[in-house]
């Protein structure tokens, strides 16, 4: 469904991604793993149109996304749940979800989608009138996921959903992502918790200094000697 071919990108004179090729098929969950500064977040920013690419091609279901302004990507079906959740802290949970349904196609189904998100994450319904900035870390992540789901994206990008959460909550967040998967969404997730990520996804790519170092199915990577030694300390 999503195809990146030889994508290079960077900030000013600093190049962060070198000829990345990557594929996500419909219904799949794919992880991008790698150390800090490998370019994982940059990769997601490229896919959601936040950062223009220097060369290469990006297509979604065969349609090129090049040259599209950043705010049009969500209409093409790509929702991006950014690093650190980035909720609107002084708006209520429900207003945050409303922002997730800003695009016209989502607005038309706002009421039913809202019910659906509340059914998926019942905790949010209890907190609907509360300011997002006052939620607990786990609830905030729930709200961020819900916001991204309001547009019913074809592809959901998750940037380190477990970052900054206590270990107990990390498990909970992975559970939330599992629930989202079960609803049939296609997910591309960036994670530093490599072991847990590999439990969750079908396939994964290992990024190192802006290049794809390894790729394969979750099963293959779990047994990969290099990955185990370098990143899992096994």
């Amino acid at each position: 469904m999503l195809t990146l071919r030889d994508v290079s990108a960077g900030y000013g004179s600093f190049q962060a991604l070198f000829e990345i090729s990557l594929e996500v098929s419909a219904g799949e969950a794919v992880a991008v793993i790698g150390p800090n500064g490998a370019g994982k977040t940059t990769l997601l920013r490229v896919i959601s149109g936040q950062l223009p690419i220097l060369s290469g091609s990006i297509t979604l279901q065969g349609r090129s996304l090049l040259g599209l302004p950043a705010h049009r990507f969500i209409e093409e079906g790509i929702a991006h749940c950014p690093e650190n959740r980035r909720l609107f802290p002084r708006m209520t949970v429900e207003d945050n979800l409303r922002m997730g349904a800003f695009i016209p196609t989502a607005r038309r189904h706002f009421a039913e989608r809202l019910d659906w998100v509340y059914a998926l994450f019942p905790r949010l319904r209890e907190r609907r009138g509360q300011l997002a900035g006052t939620l607990s870390g786990g609830e905030q992540q729930m709200c961020a996921l819900g916001r991204a789901l309001m547009s019913h994206p074809k592809l959901l990008l998750l940037d380190e959903p477990s970052a900054g959460l206590a270990p107990v909550l990390v498990m909970q967040v992975f559970d939330l992502v599992r629930r989202i998967r079960a609803e049939g969404f296609t997910v591309l997730i960036v994670e530093q918790n490599i072991q847990q990520a590999l439990e969750l996804v079908d396939r994964a790519y290992l990024l190192e200094v802006g290049k794809v170092k390894l790729s394969g199915t979750a099963g293959e990577l779990k047994n990969n000697q290099f990955l185990r030694q370098a990143y899992m300390g096994l």
């Binding site: 959601s48 149109g49 936040q50 302004p69 950043a70 705010h71 049009r72 990507f73 969500i74 209409e75 929702a79 991006h80 950014p82 980035r86 609107f88 802290p89 002084r90 708006m91 922002m99 997730g100 800003f102 695009i103 547009s151």
Partner: peptide
């Protein structure tokens, strides 16, 4: 509140 992520909301 957060202008940078507005394009993510479309």
């Amino acid at each position: 509140q957060d202008r940078e992520i507005m394009s993510l909301m479309g």
